[in-house]
């Protein structure tokens, strides 16, 4: 199908919002999964939510997970370690900017690009200028 994306955020609403934006670019061609907030609805990142999101975003072509801040990265790394070696081989973490990275990676995934190209595009979003100068 296509590389899937997981949006890891401390906030459930932020993760869902980024998924909403990215989905506007992909028209259902890419699996997008939000992993935001804690099970009790509080702010934070939950390992269980991230591992579930990785499973639901993976159609076999791999998953790129984007993260918001701080402990989201630690949790995402733990989620990766909890996968078996075969699954882990096709999951990548991106430290690229969450919103721009997700949108660009979603488009890259939607045209059928392989995992490492989708990752590279998510990372490259750092160089995207928001304001015209």
């Amino acid at each position: 199908m296509a590389v899937g994306l997981v949006i890891v955020s401390h906030s459930a609403r932020l993760a869902e919002g980024v998924v909403e934006l990215a989905a506007q670019m992909t028209h259902g061609a890419v699996r997008l999964a939000a992993a935001g907030g804690m099970d009790d609805g509080g702010i934070g990142t939950s390992l269980a939510r991230v591992t579930q999101a990785i499973a639901s975003a993976d159609s076999g072509d791999g998953v790129v997970a984007l993260i918001d801040l701080g402990s989201a990265a630690l949790i995402a790394e733990m989620a990766l370690e909890s996968l078996d070696a075969e699954q882990r081989a096709h999951v990548r973490l991106s430290g690229g900017p969450l919103v721009e990275g997700a949108i660009l990676a979603a488009v890259e995934a939607s045209v059928g690009s392989p995992l490492d190209e989708v990752l590279a595009t998510a990372e490259s979003a750092r160089s995207l200028e928001k304001l015209k100068r």
Partner: peptide
């Protein structure tokens, strides 16, 4: 701890 703490202490103490 990893699934309930929420902040960075979750993964750190959890690990």
């Amino acid at each position: 701890l990893v699934s309930t703490v929420g902040g960075a202490s979750g993964p750190l103490y959890g690990t």
